[in-house]
Amino acid sequence: MDFKVLPVKFSEQSEAVHYLFYKQHTVRSPVPEKPSDRTLFVINVLPYMDEASLKRLFRDCGKVRRVYIHKKPTPGLPEADSSRFFPTVEPVVGYKVAYCVFTKPEGLQKALSLDLSAESAPRVLSTEQHPLQVGVVKWQQEYNDSVLDEEALKKEVDEYMAEHDARVAEEIQKAREQEGQPDSDGWVLVTRHSKRPVARRTEGLDQRLKEKMKKKRQRQQMVNLYNFQLKDTKMEQLAKLREKFEEDKRKIASMRVQRKFRPY
């Protein structure tokens, strides 16, 4: 199916017209959240357009249940941050694509049958009732959102640490239960939570270990550290091989001279 062209402009006073391209969302393996019979695939979405503005754009076609925004076409769902204060997913900036999921299939069919002739007026994105935040207003809102709520931050950190402590305690308990228990092959699992006593690391013990390592390094000789040392070593080995070769030649010549014919 070919794309349909939808002209839009920022406000009633805007003269510049932008064009959105959309068609029915069709993939080989659709996800349940993006059914093909109710999902509209939109590209060339403006950077300042959000989920609410896209819903209003197609509200005369039917109720839009959900809008998924991606940086590029993706059959799956966008990644979601599990934390409000420690985001792990980069925000989608610049031009993007969107998947508008209607509540009923009739909404998608109405959107595909819109009158988009050259004479049709562009649809307005920002109105008095629903203004879009751009420029300084958007920067101010982003700054206000960047100010952390200390109480909410403390609550999230405390919840995370509680979950972490519970998970660590569960792992320790599981390791202790498996300690000394042979598996089906007869192997016994040894964990770091073993009951065997371990020597404590004290300053005296650390000092003795350092002195021991220092003496060990002093006993080690630096062999072939530099290139000239490596070259000299090879030359010495080659001279020894040549000397042994000459000695073997002399032994063979002496054996040939001493060889006698002994028929009996």
Rank of each mutant, 00 (worst) to 15 (best):
residue 2 D to F: 03
residue 3 F to Q: 08
residue 5 V to E: 14
residue 8 V to W: 02
residue 8 V to L: 06
residue 11 S to E: 05
residue 15 E to M: 12
residue 15 E to K: 14
residue 16 A to P: 09
residue 17 V to C: 10
residue 20 L to I: 03
residue 21 F to L: 10
residue 28 R to Q: 11
residue 28 R to A: 14
residue 30 P to Q: 05
residue 31 V to W: 05
residue 31 V to P: 01
residue 32 P to N: 06
residue 36 S to T: 03
residue 43 I to H: 01
residue 44 N to Y: 04
residue 45 V to H: 06
residue 45 V to N: 04
residue 47 P to S: 13
residue 47 P to V: 08
residue 47 P to T: 14
residue 48 Y to Q: 11
residue 49 M to R: 09
residue 51 E to N: 11
residue 52 A to V: 06
residue 53 S to E: 09
residue 54 L to I: 06
residue 54 L to C: 05
residue 56 R to K: 07
residue 57 L to F: 02
residue 59 R to F: 12
residue 61 C to F: 07
residue 61 C to P: 05
residue 63 K to R: 12
residue 63 K to S: 09
residue 65 R to P: 01
residue 71 K to P: 10
residue 72 K to S: 15
residue 77 L to P: 01
residue 80 A to Q: 15
residue 82 S to I: 09
residue 83 S to L: 05
residue 87 P to V: 08
residue 88 T to R: 12
residue 94 G to Y: 12
residue 95 Y to S: 14
residue 96 K to S: 15
residue 99 Y to K: 01
residue 100 C to H: 04
residue 101 V to A: 13
residue 103 T to V: 09
residue 104 K to R: 11
residue 104 K to M: 10
residue 106 E to V: 06
residue 107 G to Y: 03
residue 108 L to Q: 08
residue 110 K to F: 04
residue 110 K to A: 08
residue 111 A to N: 08
residue 111 A to M: 06
residue 114 L to Q: 07
residue 118 A to F: 03
residue 122 P to W: 10
residue 122 P to F: 06
residue 124 V to S: 00
residue 124 V to G: 00
residue 125 L to C: 02
residue 127 T to N: 00
residue 130 H to K: 00
residue 138 K to L: 11
residue 140 Q to L: 14
residue 141 Q to R: 10
residue 144 N to L: 15
residue 146 S to K: 12
residue 148 L to H: 02
residue 150 E to N: 13
residue 151 E to A: 09
residue 154 K to F: 04
residue 154 K to L: 10
residue 157 V to T: 01
residue 157 V to G: 01
residue 157 V to M: 07
residue 158 D to C: 12
residue 160 Y to Q: 07
residue 172 I to R: 09
residue 172 I to S: 05
residue 174 K to Y: 05
residue 176 R to I: 12
residue 180 G to A: 13
residue 181 Q to I: 15
residue 181 Q to N: 15
residue 183 D to N: 14
residue 185 D to H: 09
residue 185 D to E: 14
residue 187 W to D: 14
residue 187 W to K: 15
residue 188 V to C: 13
residue 189 L to I: 15
residue 194 S to F: 04
residue 195 K to A: 04
residue 198 V to T: 08
residue 200 R to Q: 08
residue 202 T to M: 14
residue 203 E to Q: 14
residue 205 L to M: 08
residue 206 D to M: 15
residue 206 D to W: 13
residue 206 D to G: 13
residue 206 D to I: 13
residue 209 L to I: 10
residue 209 L to W: 08
residue 211 E to W: 06
residue 214 K to P: 04
residue 220 Q to I: 09
residue 222 M to E: 08
residue 222 M to N: 12
residue 224 N to T: 03
residue 225 L to T: 11
residue 229 Q to G: 03
residue 231 K to A: 14
residue 232 D to H: 10
residue 234 K to G: 07
residue 234 K to Y: 04
residue 237 Q to S: 10
residue 238 L to F: 04
residue 241 L to W: 06
residue 242 R to L: 12
residue 244 K to L: 07
residue 246 E to F: 02
residue 247 E to R: 11
residue 248 D to S: 11
residue 250 R to P: 01
residue 250 R to H: 04
residue 250 R to C: 05
residue 250 R to V: 01
residue 251 K to M: 11
residue 252 I to F: 09
residue 252 I to D: 14
residue 252 I to Y: 09
residue 254 S to L: 06
residue 256 R to G: 00
residue 258 Q to T: 05
residue 258 Q to W: 01
residue 259 R to C: 02
residue 259 R to K: 03
residue 262 R to A: 04
residue 262 R to P: 01
residue 262 R to C: 06
residue 262 R to E: 13
